[in-house]
Amino acid sequence: MPCRTDRLRVHVVDDNPSVLDSMRALLMAHGQDVVLHGSAEAFLDSSQRTAAECLLLDLRMPGMSGTELQRRLRERADPIPIVMLTGHGDVPVAVAAMKAGAIDFIEKPGTEAQILAAIALAADTIANRQPPPLPAGEIAERLARLTHREREVLDHLVIGETNKAIADRLGISQRTVEIHRSRIREKLEARGLSDLIRMMR
């Protein structure tokens, strides 16, 4: 279980009070400084900002959406690392968010490991450290383990296509895509889609 000493101030923005409270409980248990916001607008209005901060941001909210908040922050060149919290079926949007600079995304309900890894990644980003060192040669070596079909599936995955879309496009079943997906994860030693996207970036 990764447990880093870096103490961050984690801003959590979500419209659901239970999610906010449970997130606070989890993150505080892991020693993080947590600030909760019930909406994107509330976050924008808040003034408690320090250098070591990251943002866990819900994609779907009434009023300003997570995507919109991300856009606004980027517009004012705010460097705060963003981890997107998404519901089901929002993967394409999450991928778009990563393209737009989000460092990670977590599909709700995320596992503890996913959440902590994302926080750790944010800490690395703030410390201007490269993400877990993975030399290009290593990536190439792992990619070489993929079959032609797996490589094809990967190419579609990293541009945010859904299992269904990939299945339609390649003329295979969704179940087969899922099998390919887990093989790809194993062979590339990735935890999830966000790792894959980072590797292929």
Binding site: N16, S18, V19, D21, S22, M23, A25, L26, G87, H88, K108, P109, G110, T111, E112, I115
Partner: peptide
């Protein structure tokens, strides 16, 4: 449902 589930997991 995802909200309470996320909360349960987190708690």
């Amino acid at each position: 449902l995802n909200q309470p589930l996320a909360a349960v997991t987190n708690y």
